[in-house]
Each structure stands twice: as structure tokens, then as C-alpha cells.
Amino acid sequence: MNVVLWILEWFGRPEQWTGTSGIPARFLEHVLYSGLALLLSAAIAVPVGLVTGHTGRGGFLAATLANFARALPTIGVLMLVVLVLGIGLAPVMAALVALAVPPILVNTYEGVRGVDPQLRDAAEGMGMRGREVLLRLETPIALPLILVGLRTAAIQVVSTATIAAFVGLGGLGRFIVDGRARQDFPMILGGSLLVVLLALIVIVLFALLRRVLVARGLRRRAAAPI
């Protein structure tokens, strides 16, 4: 069997490129689910991580939470939530957010904690108030790690959103689920390849984001191999 030819043949079918079950529509659905979940998670986790990091309280809790979250089988969480709350966008979002919050939270917390105490001393000594220390000093310095947390979460969300098709949602996972049901192997492979493509786009996007957002003065230090 020639797998490459299979996939090419599948991508070549004209009906793949139009309609609500075509590649562009599914791709967009996937991006929308993932983007929404990531935004919600960031809106919760970044502020909480910044504040807990700034005050130094709750760090142990955040770390334990993240450890526990990593041990959780995502597919089980997703299916349990859907089984209990019913099929629909809201339950899936709840599951995705629950999985994406811990990596963002922990990286943000560690990023702020990792700021050299001397710098904090200098900032306070010059008359910065707590909020100013957080926004003008700690946040920009923690930004590279915050972005790592967001990227980890984004990758996890893209991956888990694929499984969301098993509980009746759209997105690229549909190709895999429907392909299984129809024994259409090229469809499964084509869908998988599209998921890989989206994941790679996420990586590139975060590399660009890093280039745009992280201050030049921090970049060289971070780039030095450890």
C-alpha cells in the first residue's frame, strides 16, 4: 500500500474543499474551539499566576495542581464531563479549559517568582508600588515563561480538541471519527496530517509572538544554551 498516494488522493477529492464538512470549514472550527479555550484559560490563569507569583502565596498549591493535571488522562476527563453535563460546546470548553489552566498558571507563577530579588529591591527602592512592580518589572521579565505556558496549553488544547469529535463536536477530529466509522483510511490519515499541520502552525506562531513581545534585552540571555 502506498500511504502517501492515499493521502494525496484524499486531499485531491474536490468535495473536501467546500461545504460545512470540508477541510476549510473543519480547520476553522478547530481553530475557533482551540482559540476560545486558550483565551478563556489565559484569562483565568495569567492573572491568578501573576498575583500568586507576586505575593508568593499559593505556589505549592499551583504546583500540586499542575502535577495532578499532567497525570490526568485528558480523554477520560473530556468524556466524563460530556457524560455528566451533556453534549455541546460548553461542556467541551469546560474540559479544555480545565486542562489548559495548569500549565499557564504554573509557568506564570514560576516566571514571576524567578525575577531576581535584587531587581525587586531596586524597583521598590525607587518608589514603585506593588502594582507597578508587577506590571513594569515582573510581567515583562516573566513573559518568556508565560509564553511557554501558553504554548504548552495551546498544543494540548489543539490535541484534545481533536478528541472532542468523539463526543459529537466538529473540528479536524471529525475526519478521524467519521473515517473510522466509514472504514475510510485515507480520511483518517488526511485528518491526522491536518492536525499535525495545525500544531506546527501553533509552534511557529508562538516563536513569532516571542519575537514581537519579549524585550530585546531579555532575548539574548534566554537564547544562550543552558
Binding site: G125, G127, P140, I141
Partner: peptide, 20 residues
């Protein structure tokens, strides 16, 4: 905070902000 803004403060190793 107001008091400190009226007093200059220099520490060991300067404590310069790396992102500025």
C-alpha cells in the same frame, strides 16, 4: 512609595532592569 521617589537608591550590581 512617594518618599522613595524623592530619594536616590543605588545597590550592589546596580539592579538594572534587563528588559529596558
Amino acid at each position: 512609595a512617594v518618599l522613595r521617589r524623592s530619594i536616590g537608591y543605588v545597590i550592589q550590581q546596580a539592579g538594572l532592569f534587563p528588559h529596558r
